[in-house]
Amino acid sequence: MTESAEHRIESAQVRRSPRYAMFFLVGGVLGVLVALVLTFGFNGTLDVSPTTQAQYSTGQVFGFLCLFCIPVGVAVLGAVALLIDRGFSRRVRDVRVDHERIVIDDDHERGA
């Protein structure tokens, strides 16, 4: 068994970055909460709609508002994450990285 090692030091740039998935998730949750507040904050669900002449239940109103509020919440918090990422990109640090590569050749164990 022979072993060879490559060892070199490189430089790299490191910066912080926001977790976009968490921002999107929080934006969706905030969208649901806003839709919930709008659904129960106004008592318009018992009235007949002037355009369709239909009466919508509270669940239907909540669903319609979720269709609008969730994408808006995700988009707004996504934009906030982009702005935060833009701010963090100015604070880039240069670091030294120890890059080591070890190759183990075990040809003699396979019968070669």
Results as ranks from 00 to 15, higher is better:
residue 48 V to G: 06
residue 86 R to G: 14
residue 26 V to Q: 01
residue 75 A to F: 05
residue 52 T to M: 09
residue 75 A to W: 03
residue 12 A to W: 12
residue 59 G to S: 07
residue 61 V to G: 00
residue 9 I to S: 12
residue 72 V to I: 12
residue 110 R to A: 12
residue 34 V to D: 03
residue 58 T to E: 01
residue 7 H to I: 05
residue 98 D to C: 01
residue 67 L to G: 14
residue 65 L to W: 01
residue 87 G to K: 07
residue 65 L to M: 04
residue 96 R to G: 08
residue 33 L to Y: 04
residue 9 I to Q: 07
residue 111 G to S: 01
residue 105 D to I: 07
residue 95 V to M: 06
residue 26 V to W: 12
residue 79 A to H: 09
residue 7 H to T: 15
residue 14 V to D: 06
residue 111 G to Q: 00
residue 21 A to V: 10
residue 37 V to G: 10
residue 75 A to V: 07
residue 110 R to K: 15
residue 70 I to A: 02
residue 15 R to D: 02
residue 15 R to F: 00
residue 66 C to N: 06
residue 97 V to C: 03
residue 100 E to S: 09
residue 10 E to P: 02
residue 80 V to G: 06
residue 26 V to D: 03
residue 64 F to P: 00
residue 84 I to W: 06
residue 93 R to I: 11
residue 75 A to G: 09
residue 38 L to H: 05
residue 98 D to F: 00
residue 58 T to I: 05
residue 91 R to L: 09
residue 38 L to K: 07
residue 99 H to F: 09
residue 18 P to Q: 06
residue 21 A to I: 10
residue 5 A to P: 07
residue 78 G to R: 00
residue 13 Q to H: 03
residue 62 F to W: 00
residue 62 F to E: 00
residue 29 V to S: 09
residue 61 V to K: 01
residue 90 R to F: 11
residue 93 R to C: 03
residue 92 V to K: 11
residue 80 V to W: 01
residue 31 G to I: 00
residue 49 S to Y: 09
residue 57 S to L: 00
residue 9 I to H: 08
residue 98 D to R: 13
residue 101 R to S: 09
residue 30 L to Q: 10
residue 1 M to K: 09
residue 107 D to I: 12
residue 58 T to M: 01
residue 6 E to A: 06
residue 37 V to A: 13
residue 78 G to P: 02
residue 36 L to G: 14
residue 4 S to Y: 13
residue 81 A to V: 01
residue 59 G to M: 02
residue 111 G to E: 00
residue 43 N to R: 08
residue 39 T to I: 01
residue 94 D to G: 11
residue 110 R to V: 10
residue 103 V to T: 15
residue 6 E to L: 13
residue 94 D to C: 13
residue 35 A to E: 07
residue 10 E to W: 01
residue 91 R to P: 05
residue 67 L to M: 09
residue 75 A to P: 04
residue 92 V to T: 15
residue 3 E to I: 14
residue 52 T to H: 02
residue 102 I to Q: 05
residue 28 G to T: 03
residue 82 L to Y: 03
residue 54 A to Y: 14
residue 81 A to S: 15
residue 45 T to I: 11
residue 25 L to G: 12
residue 1 M to I: 12
residue 109 E to K: 11
residue 40 F to G: 05
residue 90 R to T: 13
residue 26 V to L: 13
residue 100 E to G: 09
residue 59 G to T: 06
residue 27 G to P: 05
residue 55 Q to M: 07
residue 46 L to Q: 14
residue 15 R to Y: 07
residue 6 E to H: 11
residue 37 V to T: 06
residue 80 V to N: 04
residue 97 V to W: 01
residue 27 G to W: 09
residue 14 V to L: 13
residue 88 F to W: 14
residue 99 H to N: 12
residue 85 D to K: 10
residue 94 D to T: 15
residue 50 P to H: 04
residue 18 P to R: 08
residue 10 E to V: 14
residue 20 Y to E: 11
residue 112 A to I: 15
residue 21 A to D: 06
residue 7 H to C: 03
residue 56 Y to G: 00
residue 100 E to W: 08
residue 3 E to C: 11
residue 22 M to T: 10
residue 108 H to T: 15
residue 110 R to Q: 10
residue 51 T to K: 13
residue 108 H to I: 11
residue 44 G to Q: 11
residue 63 G to Q: 05
residue 77 L to H: 03
residue 17 S to I: 13
residue 100 E to H: 13
residue 25 L to C: 10
residue 2 T to A: 11
residue 94 D to P: 09
residue 110 R to P: 04
residue 24 F to L: 15
residue 54 A to Q: 15
residue 111 G to N: 02
residue 55 Q to G: 02
